[in-house]
Design a protein around this nucleic acid. Structure first.
Ligand SMILES: NC(=O)c1ccc[n+]([C@@H]2O[C@H](COP(=O)([O-])OP(=O)(O)OC[C@H]3O[C@@H](n4cnc5c(N)ncnc54)[C@H](O)[C@@H]3O)[C@@H](O)[C@H]2O)c1
Ligand SMILES: NC(=O)c1ccc[n+]([C@@H]2O[C@H](COP(=O)([O-])OP(=O)(O)OC[C@H]3O[C@@H](n4cnc5c(N)ncnc54)[C@H](O)[C@@H]3O)[C@@H](O)[C@H]2O)c1
Lengths: 208, 208
DNA sequence: ATCATAATGTTACTTTTTTCACAATAACAA
DNA sequence: TTGTTATTGTGAAAAAAGTAACATTATGAT
């Protein structure tokens, strides 16, 4: 099922909102509750659901539990997703120390670095030398890598991990990387995020 | 000039590509060079430029230097943009140690934390107690804050800094924050980025 | 000077995304 | 059972974003 990126992002948001509602004791939800929680309109919610064949009950809304099951299955959250982090520097180690991914069923299986000082093989979350990345990817069946290496190394590391079977990359280097057919790159570009914010703040300032 | 977020993001990308081209010795550029560099079509480039009244020369393309000047002025990069970071934990300190923002004319003026152990008042980049944030924002005229505090604290910190005059927030907490009229929130939600990547990798896997 | 060319700038078209509107219908009340 | 109501699911309309096409016009060649 090929679908727009935005639609999948909204699914993630619905899921998060549903967990919150569940925590608050709710059992069912209406499209406009979810819409409010996520910041879209009710029609968008229902349309998104219809794309994935998710249906609710006329008058009764949606059972949160069932809804979560379906969304989780679509998003692949019904099974543990293992990822690796390449580059155990500032960003890389912040990510590796972060506990929030586990709650989401995303496990950082290992980190990799070229700096021998960073290697820590016997940790719960081991940091391994980059030379071992191929074996690790193959043996663990890893599909996703987070790239947190210096800008200059990013393309070469991408080429390496793609050649080892990685199919998706979350890249923190503020560069446009070229990826082989069949490998998806999502960029987290904080410079651009800030620039964007600065622009809109300045515009609001001016038009005030 | 009110414009779509995507259009501004593209402006940032054009700018980055232009600097690269300039480094390579180029003096002028055509819309399709830029399009290739950024991964859009030439028509988009020209349209984006026309929105901002940026014009080139029939046949001659665009002078990179002039183009950069105009884009930089639109993005507010012709003057130093000062931001603050709230929360000097894993993500917060990674950001504060990052040198990449300075190259972009973005200066992290200070960090703030509630943990006394994190305070470091006499550093080049001081980390100050949260109580001082109001005075700092006012005296330095700060408009932008990066939120890197625990999820649970994010909304309350947003309320605080907005009440002190902050107009734009880059939020790392995976929550939808409510912001007062006139304050823009951009979210960096890494869980959702990963979920998204996982979805599309899995879809590609299945349809193969 | 004149012409051919190459690239812009813009208008018209297409596609995608979002919103609107309402018929269909399950739930509940009388 | 019948009627009323509330909410879904969807098709049509509107808006936004992106693409294509081409008339326009500087530039350099002849
Ligand atoms: N730190 C931030 O806040 C921040 C913000 C925005 C963007 N980024 C981007 O994130 C990336 C990482 O930044 P950082 O601050 O963590 O850098 P860093 O220098 O702290 O860490 C980079 C790590 O990568 C390792 N490394 C270098 N080459 C490698 C290779 N070929 N294979 C494996 N590991 C290698 C280094 O040994 C180091 O440990 C950079 O592209 C940077 O532009 C960082
Ligand atoms: N670390 C990551 O890789 C990562 C990844 C994704 C999202 N996030 C999000 O980023 C945020 C920060 O994560 P982290 O890992 O850096 O957390 P952290 O616990 O390492 O750091 C949080 C810092 O905020 C400070 N703090 C707490 N309450 C505060 C308050 N009211 N005012 C000012 N400072 C306060 C703490 O003292 C601490 O230094 C969280 O919302 C987290 O969900 C982090």
């Amino acid at each position: 099922m090929i679908t727009a990126k935005n639609c999948i992002i909204r699914l993630s948001r619905y899921k998060n909102a549903l967990y919150r509602l569940q925590t608050l004791g709710f059992v069912k939800v209406f499209s406009d509750n979810l819409a409010d929680a996520v910041g879209v309109t009710a029609a968008v919610v229902r349309k998104d659901f219809s794309v994935f064949g998710i249906s609710g009950n006329k008058k009764g809304g949606y059972q949160i539990e069932i809804l979560l099951e379906k969304i989780n299955s679509i998003l692949g959250k019904d099974r543990l997703q293992k990822v690796i982090v390449i580059g155990a520097g500032h960003i890389g180690s912040a990510l590796m120390r972060y506990r929030g991914f586990e709650k989401e069923g995303i496990k950082i299986a290992a980190g990799f670095d070229i700096d021998p000082a960073k290697i820590n093989r016997y940790n719960a979350l081991p940091i391994l030398p980059l030379e071992e990345v191929k074996d690790f990817i193959k043996s663990q069946g890893i599909k996703i890598a987070i790239l947190a290496v210096p800008d200059i190394a990013a393309q070469e590391v991408l080429d390496l991990v793609c050649s080892c079977g990685i199919k998706g990359i979350l890249n923190f280097a503020p560069l446009r990387l070229i990826s082989p057919e069949g490998c998806i790159v999502n960029n987290v570009n904080l410079e651009i995020e800030l620039e964007n914010l600065i622009y809109f703040v300045n515009v609001a300032e001016k038009t005030k």
